[in-house]
Nucleic acid binder design. Structure first.
Lengths: 183, 183
DNA sequence: AGGCGCATGTAAGCCGTTACATGATTCC
DNA sequence: GGAATCATGTAACGGCTTACATGCGCCT
């Protein structure tokens, strides 16, 4: 019933009011957040959510040719969000472009393969640094110790990002050692 | 030019000949492989690849109302695959349904949140077991030590799966401790 | 004067999912 | 006899990407 994009938007709105534009901005850069969307998608999704009364909006002053709208979640919307996150185990359709590429690295000569892995390592390391910085920020906030506070969930998901990126960097280092051992 | 699905198919065909049906079967279960697709997509993609002469097929005996086709990669196809995997750093559009859900767990009471994390832990643990089993199998094959052999790439990507799932299980355990510490 | 950020929307096209359609062989 | 597996295709639909469209306010 509720699509994943709609759930993502409800999740952001549960943490505070937003305009369509500011939702689009948050979902462009995925640090500290784990879904992406374009503004064209977001505006139509917000209109659909409004029709089902899961969100409401007030018109505020702002730039642009059309009226600027500030969206808030309704109590029905909060219930829909809770139903979505507690929903049955997802099938999860696994799509990992990086691993797909590396799975065919045997078609390259080992120096080409090494270059691939080095690039991957750099991407993971820079993402790790971004997560660590944001985690330090959230961790310093005492609200992040309260399980009913949004900052608590931010802290736990960011910690997951840190752990997964650390594992990815270690994996790349191990692959580089494997490639150096057998040139 | 070459879509991701096309590259995935070329990657499988570079390792050996397949019918459309057997490609579909491989891509239904993602263990040891990191992309999924339905047969309806695969047949049209194979037709497109054939028109561009990146694959060819021979008609063989088999069941079914239409002729059974066995596909093989061409040298142009192998070159297209190499070009794809060596292509510039991907933007990677991050879509993680599990983390998206956990990011809103603060809207549930802590016991509901704990149930969510326990489910996630089980999913990661069973995936980890599957990866470990397949890795043990591949690891025993001496060909997996040769960087120009497909088994080498299988071993490295499976090892990545093991590391990432181990990290995910550790993360879930840590989250459960956090939730127990502050009920 | 020009560029950037704020702000909202529509439209075309591509990719992926689900359903429709057909039929042979093998196993229970 | 019926179910599962092998085997290939088309069609409808929905989600995501990219491009088109408009225009105000602020900074340089």
């Amino acid at each position: 019933m509720t699509s994943t994009l709609e759930a993502a938007l409800l999740g952001v709105l549960a943490r505070g009011e937003n305009t369509g534009y500011s939702l689009a901005r948050r979902m462009r850069r995925p640090v500290g957040y784990f879904w992406t969307a374009h503004h064209s998608q977001i505006y139509t999704a917000l209109a659909a959510l409004k029709q089902r009364e899961l969100v409401r909006h007030t018109v505020i002053d702002g730039a642009g040719p059309r009226p600027t709208k500030r969206y808030a979640i309704t109590s029905a919307g909060l219930e829909a969000l809770r139903a979505f996150i507690a929903d049955d185990p997802e099938p999860a359709p696994v799509r990992d472009l990086e691993t797909l590429r590396l799975w065919s690295m045997w078609t390259l000569d080992p120096s080409g393969a090494r270059a691939l892995v080095e690039q991957a390592r750099e991407r993971h390391a820079s993402r790790l640094a971004a997560y660590e910085e944001e985690l330090a920020h959230v961790d310093a906030d005492p609200a992040s110790r309260n399980p009913r506070d949004p900052q608590f969930a931010s802290r736990l998901t960011l910690a997951g990002g840190v752990l997964s990126r650390r594992a990815a960097v270690e994996w790349c280092d191990w692959m580089l050692a494997e490639l150096r051992a057998r040139p």
